[in-house]
């Protein structure tokens, strides 16, 4: 016995999340999947970035912090190691 099914309409749903381990940004304490205080929309508008030390923050948050520090003394707010943006997010 077989069914002859005709698909009239379909509705795709996807979900996304930043691959950032810890679930909140250490600076604003907002979820990585949400927005920092200055951000309007989550996602591409409120990206998450990593330092070479492995700590992650909202891009807006870490930029604001680095701008307030001397150019020659840019450090990770967690571990105080020299801050350098990591090229890409680590893949799991």
């Amino acid at each position: 016995m077989t069914f002859d099914v005709e698909i009239v309409r379909w509705h795709a749903v996807a979900s996304w999340t930043w691959n950032a381990g810890d679930d909140v940004c250490g600076i604003c304490r907002m979820p990585f999947d949400g927005c920092p205080p200055d951000g309007k929309y989550p996602g591409d508008d409120s990206p998450v970035v990593w330092g070479v030390c492995g700590h992650a923050f909202h891009l807006q948050c870490i930029q604001k912090w680095l701008q307030s520090q001397a150019q020659t003394d840019q450090r990770c707010p967690f571990c105080r190691r020299a801050w350098e943006f990591k090229a890409a997010a680590p893949s799991s």
Binding site: C28, R29, M30, P36, P37, D38
Partner: peptide, 11 residues
């Protein structure tokens, strides 16, 4: 609310 206030709520 200012960013400071938002963060203070968390604190």
């Amino acid at each position: 609310q200012s960013a400071g206030e938002l963060r203070m709520q968390k604190d």
